[in-house]
Design a protein around this nucleic acid. Structure first.
Length: 795
DNA sequence: CATATACCGCTTTTT
DNA sequence: GCGGTATATG
């Protein structure tokens, strides 16, 4: 974040140095409630950190009286660092964390008040779905048309509204068999979580609210502790989160205080600061309620509102585009971002013939920018859906561009990693049957589905947990081999479990994996993929060692908590020197010198699925707006004319949002209007109806003349599909991955690339499978290629 | 009970 | 174009 430093200003306090008047007021204002309406890039993080620092610096608050809620753990860590660097001291006791992390912390301390243990498991969405799937099967609910995702979505929605089984039942229509069955599922789901000593993601918030409401003396504990509460990204809070803040900012009832503190004068409500921008609200789909911010002044009477409109991040061209786009959302308070840094470069537009072509454009620009001195870590590629990464990754690998995909969080989703976690959870929380089921027969021990079901029904009949049923396997008439296998596993879990609270996490994991032969089984397997799986598990061991190094006192429970609550953006490693690839949602709150916004097409952005939802297109527009405003200096908008979905090719149309940007702000390298299905140069789609006609051609053709391309009209679609082999598009890149084995190249070699044609190697860097050739192609210029994977042959 | 094969449905975004 | 599930076979 940069600030304009005006040397003429008195520097009365370093806390206020370089702030504009509104920012300054946001730091200094004192009162019960403050809403900071902060446009994109208006320096709100700096304002928040300085506000916290100033509260501590002036002795108005101890660090331990501060609770700051951020959207990601990474943002929390950064905020803590910055507060500490301003104050020049550690700020012990300050809570800066996400909603979910803060609630876990509270719940671990207080869970025993209402029938949970502090060692509860956190079910991620995959766990929830697995449980729901089981319940649907057990209740034969699929015959009523219930799907796992449907039920999961509905339950999540209800929990975000703080509904539980009872309150839902009160309003339910029992004449509707569907509703009765849903209620059964919901009830069973809730019961299962309770029995498993587990919370799902939504429970973490909802149950904390329940805890505060049901146990006022517990609430008073936290109301008394947190005197200053600050919430970032307030526009994306849902009802449960809103209620949580509401509970924490309640005046404290005298008789809820411990006796020795009663009668020592009333303690008013904590002061609340929220920061948000309704134009950046992009989580309505998961229950975020924009009214939380719109109605803040009504909820907190006497609240002060401060507007931050000056942008310190982007060039004026980027801001003008952003302003123009968001102005199309009616029903918003008009707010115009401005800057004093000047127009900057134009936005660059590009239309590829396929998503590979588009990806190649992005890769080429990344390489060019890198050549101009822009570090890889200052570039990011955004997209609407995770599926879009495939083409980008393919091309990036071949172009030898270091990149990282955020939020695929593939690692923790891998089966072998979930299995390893299954062992850890089984040790930490013996009541959890889901973890147990995962590992019962991994590695293979001959305990199959039938045995598992028998163990479960014995458990149900005797009213005990699955784990206890396993301990009693000897009484259940299994064969000697199976009984031995069950008891053997139980013994290992029980013995390791005794050290669960004290032993270092890597020791626990290694002991479990060794005694169960988990890794050994993977290594011994003849499936070649199992070797990679074994390596992944080794990687997990490294992760636990890392954790223990950073948290010498860290326990298994803390490790499990930390790994359950990672957000996509937490994975960014600022020192890594890689280009970041992420969804537009993940991009919120981040900023980069150069931003590539890809797939700006109808049905993708706005996404097809959002079309029918009320408020859908407007939310998609905010998403686009968020993407644009992440860019500091260079913004690229790209799209493809065809996109492969489900394997076959579909025609894509430029997004309506592109038209909302004043044309003079965009420099089209290859405009959507340049090529049509009929092989002509009719303007395509932009400002044009589908039946042709002409007007508003954007950009002027330059260099790329196509003889044919997939069609833009419905009529042309069939013809395009039948007639066009990909190879006819000279600028496209084939989707094949190949392996050139040990092919070595030296400068001077001539090569032929399936897409780029002939060229001469000018330099070779790197060793072994990572060696990269720099090639001067005759037609398309200079490119970097990963020798092992590029579709090339030596001439 | 484990392994191999065929098929279906699906993909929006996330803590 | 994939991953998960249902089915058949050893």
């Amino acid at each position: 974040m940069t600030f304009i430093l005006d040397p003429s200003e008195p520097t009365e306090s370093p806390l206020l140095a370089g702030l504009n008047p509104q920012q300054r007021e946001a730091v200094e204002y004192r009162g019960p409630a403050l809403l900071i309406v902060a446009g994109a890039g208006s320096g709100k993080t700096s304002v928040l950190t300085r506000r916290i620092a100033s509260l501590i610096d002036s002795r108005e608050a101890w660090p331990s009286q501060i609770l700051a809620i951020t959207f990601t753990n990474k943002a929390a860590a950064e905020m803590r660092e910055r507060v500490e660097s301003i104050l020049g001291q550690a700020s012990e006791g300050m809570w800066i964390s996400t909603f979910h992390s803060a609630c876990v912390r509270i719940l671990r301390r207080e869970a025993e008040h209402f029938g949970f243990g502090k060692n509860f498991t956190i079910y991620d969405s995959a766990d929830s779905r697995a449980l729901i799937k089981r319940i649907i099967r057990d209740l034969d609910a699929d015959t009523f048309g219930f799907t796992v995702s449907g039920v999961a979505g509905k339950i999540s929605k209800l929990k975000n509204e703080l509904s539980d089984v009872e309150s839902y039942a009160r309003g339910a229509n029992f004449n509707d068999p569907q509703e009765r069955v849903f209620l059964d599922i919901f009830r069973e789901y809730t019961r299962s979580l309770q029995a498993a000593n587990a919370f799902d993601f939504d429970d973490l918030i909802g149950q904390t609210v329940y805890l505060f409401r049901a146990f006022p003396q517990v609430a008073a504990l936290y109301q008394r502790r947190f005197r200053h509460i600050l919430v970032d990204e307030y526009q994306d809070t849902n009802h449960a989160q809103y209620a949580l803040i509401r509970e924490l900012t309640r005046p404290i009832e005298q008789n809820d205080l411990p006796l020795d503190l009663q009668g020592r004068g009333a303690l008013g409500p904590a002061s609340l600061t929220v920061v948000g921008d309704s134009d950046q609200s992009i989580y309505a789909f998961r229950g975020a309620d924009i009214r939380n911010i719109v109605e803040f002044e009504r909820d907190y009477v006497g609240a002060k509102v401060i507007l931050l409109e000056q942008n310190y991040r982007s060039t004026q061209n980027i801001l003008s585009a952003a302003n123009a786009v968001i102005a199309n959302n009616f029903d918003r308070i008009d707010k115009k971002l401005f800057t004093v840094v000047g127009d900057g470069d134009k936005i660059v537009g590009f239309t590829g013939y396929s998503q590979h072509d588009e990806a190649q454009f992005v890769a080429d620009e990344v390489t060019t920018l890198h050549g101009e001195g822009v570090d890889y870590r200052n570039m990011a590629v955004f997209y609407r859906t995770n599926a879009q990464t495939r083409a980008l990754e393919e091309i990036f690998i071949r172009s030898a561009i270091p990149y990282r995909v955020l939020g695929g969080t593939k690692f923790y989703e891998r089966a072998e990693i979930k299995d390893a976690f299954g062992y850890l959870i089984a040790v930490a929380n013996p009541a959890d049957p889901m973890a147990l089921r995962r590992i019962m027969n991994t590695p293979k021990r001959g305990i199959g589905g039938v045995t598992e079901a028998n163990l479960q029904s014995w458990a149900d009949a005797h009213g005990v947990t699955l784990r206890e049923s396993m301990r009693a396997a000897g009484e259940q008439g299994f064969g000697p081999k199976i009984t031995g296998a069950i008891l053997g596993l139980t013994k290992i879990l029980d013995e390791v479990g005794e050290t669960a609270d004290t032993a270092p996490v890597p020791d626990i994991l290694i002991t479990l994996l060794e005694r169960t032969g988990f890794i050994e089984a993977l290594r011994a397997s003849r499936d070649p993929q199992d070797e990679a799986r074994a390596e992944n598990v080794e990687e997990l061991i490294a992760v636990t060692k890392d954790f223990q190094k950073n948290n010498p006192e860290g326990t298994l429970l803390e490790f499990l908590t930390e790994t359950s609550l990672v957000a996509a953006a937490d994975e960014i490693d600022d020192s890594s020197g890689t280009v970041s690839l992420m969804t537009l949602h993940t991009a919120k709150g981040l900023e980069y010198d150069a931003v590539f916004l890809t797939g700006v097409e109808e049905d993708l952005l706005p996404h097809r699925m959002s079309a029918n939802e009320p408020g859908g297109p407007a939310e998609e527009r905010r998403l686009f707006y968020v993407g644009i405003t992440r860019a500091r200096r260079k913004l690229y908008l790209s799209l493809a004319m065809t996109r492969a979905q489900f394997g076959d090719v579909t025609v894509a149309m430029p997004s309506r949002y592109i038209q909302e940007i004043p044309p003079e702000l965009i420099d089209w390298r290859q405009s959507p209007g340049m090529a049509t299905s009929r092989g002509g140069t009719q303007p395509r789609a932009l400002n044009v109806r589908r039946d042709g006609g002409s007007s508003g051609s954007l950009g002027t053709g330059s260099g790329y003349e196509r003889t044919s391309a997939p069609g833009a009209t419905a009529l042309a679609r069939a013809a395009a599909r039948a007639a066009q082999p990909k190879t006819e598009w000279a600028n496209t890149v084939t989707g094949k991955v190949r392996d050139n084995g040990d092919l070595t190249l030296v400068p001077g070699d001539r090569i032929r690339h399936t897409d780029f044609g002939d060229g001469k190697v000018t330099a070779v860097t790197g060793v072994g499978p990572k060696s990269v050739a720099e090639v001067q192609f005759e037609k398309v210029g200079r490119k970097r290629l990963l020798i092992k994977l590029a579709p090339i042959e030596k001439l």
